[in-house]
Write a protein that binds this DNA or RNA. Sequence first.
DNA 1: AGGAAAAGCGAGCGAATACTCGCATTATAT
DNA 2: ATATAATGCGAGTATTCGCTCGCTTTTCCT
Lengths: 205, 205
Amino acid sequence: MARKPPTKPRKNASQARSRATVDALVEATARILVREGFEKASTNRIAEIAGVSVGSLYQYFPSKEALVVIDRHNDEIMQIVRAAFVEVADMPIEKAVRRLVTVAIEAHHIDPDLHRVLAEQIPRSGRLAEVEAFNHEVDGLVRAYLESHRKEMRKIDPGLAAFMCVSAIEAVAHNTVLNPAEMLSEKMVRTLVDETTRMVVGYLR
Amino acid sequence: MARKPPTKPRKNASQARSRATVDALVEATARILVREGFEKASTNRIAEIAGVSVGSLYQYFPSKEALVVIDRHNDEIMQIVRAAFVEVADMPIEKAVRRLVTVAIEAHHIDPDLHRVLAEQIPRSGRLAEVEAFNHEVDGLVRAYLESHRKEMRKIDPGLAAFMCVSAIEAVAHNTVLNPAEMLSEKMVRTLVDETTRMVVGYLR
DNA sequence: AGGAAAAGCGAGCGAATACTCGCATTATAT
DNA sequence: ATATAATGCGAGTATTCGCTCGCTTTTCCT
């Protein structure tokens, strides 16, 4: 007794075909979210757009929420951010901040529409925890950098400073993405990087 | 002909009883949004909590979205903000910024839970326009202040400066509300006001 | 008092949704 | 070649939701 459940391990994709199915579903979800919004993203519709049946959908995703693939986007951004912190570790504040601000704005621009939609939908797809983990890691990285560069700064609690810096940088990057057109020109981006760097560096000194 | 529609003007509340009904509905909506989230806020449930029938609900609100009373909250905040700008108009930058930052944080704390829920739900209840109008007005006020205090500042485009300042201040206020407990202590609020003021003033000089 | 307008009621309609289940098709292994 | 597992299917189920409509009750006005 206690045999292995023979059919339907109920989840993982092992063959090539099924992996393609999963990809199609994820991409279809992202497409619908971006082009038509969350309301239109019903499971039936997602399956239809993916060229797959609802049944297959539920073989790989236990619920509708599981389809909202915040992870992919977050991981992509987080990898860039981590790399940036490594690169920046020994730089003086001014250069480091400039680089980090640039990365933050660039990261927000990877897929602006998807970013916007995901940011809006986070609260309703129990993914709050993941996003908090993301924020927490960023906070930790900033804090670590600040602590190891204390001598270049005024006396200030690193936790507090990290909160302020992350808030300010994130806000500029986020608001930049939200704005429609001309916020995105090369020149404007450079200006925004300059200004944000100035604000943050000025604050830390 | 062209008589006034005799029964059911389909909307306004003239008697005291009906005004109470409207209030009950609005309050019930806010309560459910805060305590149980948007998903649970069905029209039937709202009516039930308000102690009113669905039919009555639709006498005063043409759709579910109309019940999400962003206006009330926004108006309340906007009034405080406008008053603050009047009060601040002739102050030097340092004092003005400190006052405005204080007001921003206080405004976010009026009803933190409601504020959070509304912020999350804005995208799905066609109220984006109203919120943009709100942001636009704030931006205008900041810009006007900055323009009339140009001599105290370094040379900088007032539009850009307004964008940066509003982003930074709003982010700190917003993130403060999101954080759970100790962010709200008297002492912490004062510290945050100090830090944000320092950041913004330092940036403008 | 009595008639008319305003306010309130709530069962129920149609549409949509998330998800299941029994079966068909395709791949893998021997 | 054949058995077995993996994958795919989609009509159907149960539920929920926004909203309507015919009716009753309350208030207002003279």
